[in-house]
Design a protein around this nucleic acid. Structure first.
Lengths: 119, 119
DNA sequence: CCAATATGCAACAAGGAGGTTGCATATGAA
DNA sequence: TTCATATGCAACCTCCTTGTTGCATATTGG
């Protein structure tokens, strides 16, 4: 069995695949998915508003929002004494595209395998 | 400011959005993304082969593969003394679709906002 | 001005995630 | 058979994540 090194999968137009780990990790939490969904439906929302839809404290929600922001998935604006949060669909789109690339690469590999077998 | 409860975002055809949390969490790790990429390029690979592309032990790779399997992202077959792993693109496609739904919902919300403002 | 509201910040605890080592077991090859 | 290879399993350690509580600060409204 040949332990050949696999090439680093360089067909993504944007960042390398590994760099999406923080993005997917940010989406990999029920509470944060709920927050994303809430902003999706409710548009721009304050921390207190977002907390109302959960069973955890406002401080915990703040930290979830910060994680989403670090991943580039949401954006915040201070307005008076409030801090309003909204979705940032660009990174979401990039993540979606990265999954596309994986699936495409996989299909391509399958076709190559088929061609090899038919040879 | 009205603390209205947001509705639970029920426009996904498959599982509810929250149920994708384990899937995204599985993708939210550099090592596992690397494994996915390796299988993507290399097709069906054994644990030892997959370990060769990382800096961690075989046992750690095994656990990462188990996490990916629990998320439905990979599938394994025993063959002799080897255990071969391969990508399972179906769940990947579902995850991609869920991101699509979020983006679409968001765009829809933006249009509604625009319509409200122009009223 | 004063009280209520909205948020920020920090310390702390519990649990899970990710990694290692050590050893047992199964299978292939010589 | 006998040795090397491929994998399974479990104990253990460390650090990060997620949540809490308590208190400080800033803004708004009456």
């Amino acid at each position: 069995m040949s332990l050949r090194r696999e090439p680093p999968l360089r067909r993504l137009k944007g960042p390398a695949l590994r760099e999406y780990a923080p993005t997917f990790a940010a989406l990999g939490d029920e509470t944060r998915l709920h927050l994303v969904a809430a902003m999706c439906v409710g548009g721009t929302m304050s921390i207190t508003q977002l907390t109302a839809g959960t069973a955890i404290t406002r401080q915990a929600v703040t930290r979830h929002l910060q994680i989403l922001a670090d991943a580039g998935l949401v954006r915040d604006v201070k307005l008076g004494r409030e801090r309003l949060w909204a979705l940032e669909p660009t990174r979401l789109e990039q993540a979606r595209h990265s999954l596309d690339m994986i699936a495409q690469q996989w299909d391509h590999a399958l076709m190559r395998l088929k061609a090899t077998l038919e040879q």
